[in-house]
Amino acid sequence: MKNRRQFLKVAGLSTLGLAGGLALPGMARAAGLKDSYRSGQEALKGGHWGMVIDTRAFDSPEKFEAVISACHKYHNVPAINSKREVKWIWKDGYHQTFTDQKDNYPAKDVLERKYLMLCNHCVNPACVRVCPTQATFRRSDGIVVMDYHRCIGCRFCMAACPYGARSFNFEDPRNFLEDRELNVSFPTRMRGVVEKCTFCSELLAVGKAPLCVEASEGAIVFGDLDDPASDVRKVLAENFTIRRKPTLGTEPSVYYII
């Protein structure tokens, strides 16, 4: 085992030396070998991250605003007031959210309520299937993320997503962020790439829960769907929940208590 490791190091050194011609003694491993990289000790790990939204608790515009602005402010999501808007998490009516529910006489409060929408982080995501560059992909913990560095802006994923979860930067998003204090700990996006909710993967990596969960004061439960003892599974076991467009086989990871 140790021999193999040493061999790899030497091999890494020499290939880097050959490739760069500049390999400095003892440092070549920096960019090359995999054991220079690991996940943080405090990182939250899960087999399949999921979310339950208690729609009954979202009974005032302020509650939506708290959740939406927490996400959009932190992630530098521009506020564009047109059909070319960018949004990671947003609200809409019952029939717009649950288009399969064609009931004629929904309960009054169900019909009047608004519902949060975000990327469903599907188990079988159509957006990932169609992406020609693997710029969008599903991580081992179930989160569907975007690599903005690689996206060519073909928008195939937007056509494929049945949930309208994806936004395209039709122009430089910073045009709409000028009058706003940017969050310097998170990037913006650039013109010509697609973006969407990341389930706050950058915060999970440092042991924090997603921002919408934090801001919801208990109305959104987040956790590992693979773990029967997780909060999210307990909530699912105790409540009747539905998902958006379940018949399409995409297997959303976001559940709604109605």
Binding site: R29, E202, V206
Partner: peptide
């Protein structure tokens, strides 16, 4: 690539 694609967000320097 490591941070975004491999979920490894800690770098161990030389």
């Amino acid at each position: 690539d490591m941070a975004l694609r491999e979920e490894k967000r800690v770098y161990v320097s030389s």
